[in-house]
Amino acid sequence: MSELLKVRDLKRHYEVHVPQGLFGRKASLKAVDGVSFSIEKGKTLGLVGESGCGKSTTAKLVLGLIPATAGSVEFAGTPVTAKHDARWRALRRRMQMIYQDPLGALDRRLPVVTQIGEPFEIHNPEMSRVERTERASGLMNAVGLRPDQAMRYPHELSGGQRQRVVIARALALEPDLLVCDEPVSALDVSIQAQVLNLLDDLRERTGFAALFISHDLKVVRQMSDRVAVMYLGRIVEAGLPEDVFLRPQHPYTKALVSAIPTPARRGKRERIVLEGDPPSPVDVPPGCAFHTRCPIAQPSCRNTVPQLVSSGGHAVACHLVNDGAATAVQAAE
């Protein structure tokens, strides 16, 4: 097993001012609060969770775009830090990122073929103009863009086509790791399928590993070899998609999975509906962060933070599951 990316106990806290009284108060917003995972070569880890649980922050930390408050990221044995020196740049060409909003990621004033060739310009300045254009055209072909679209500007393309441009550019340097932050969330279903299939095919062909982030469980399951579920800055459950989504253990994952309406599930209502909103990451509840909404919370859950305990590749961070009380929980339901 060759671990390409190794993330250990990663934290990112922000100092924020929250309104309170006359002057407000300083507080620490725990965007990411102790996350560990690893991705093997050529494999995809899916990261799901609700808005604000720290998915994008994790992505930025992995790429060294923002400094971590604590913990470490190691890419192919080299630590990734937010110091943007020559070593980081060398790593960075092997790790690329795709964002949700392709229009924001592209330069409005340049034709797309130029933008696809841009990484060569930055990381391989000796390459001739002709070769650069040739390579860019090859990439366009690979992501299913027509040659006549080469000289178009981003706003002259549809959302799906723009995302193809972004993907082509990210793949230009044949990265080992692709970090995808909600790559299809802004797209219509039919286009979403096109882009997901495209990523699938390209991964098959070039063998990149991926950190695939989405709030959509269905999409994450479709794309991932392993998945991790985040809640308030921590991973609460991780494992194979079949284990996590078909046999969820953590009460949060259970609720999340049961909440997904699909055509196939129609009429079979077994939704677990959680009460309330997720707490703010400024006021993470003590103990198990989920205890404020957990339907089976015990008094003890308020005191101790449950650790992510793995058994047979399926890891869960819940006292009731981990203390061998899992059977009792199931009986109680």
Binding site: H17, P19, G24
Partner: peptide
């Protein structure tokens, strides 16, 4: 703005 100001005021 009452809230935003508080945040920006820091």
């Amino acid at each position: 703005l009452r809230i935003k100001r508080l945040k920006a005021g820091s």
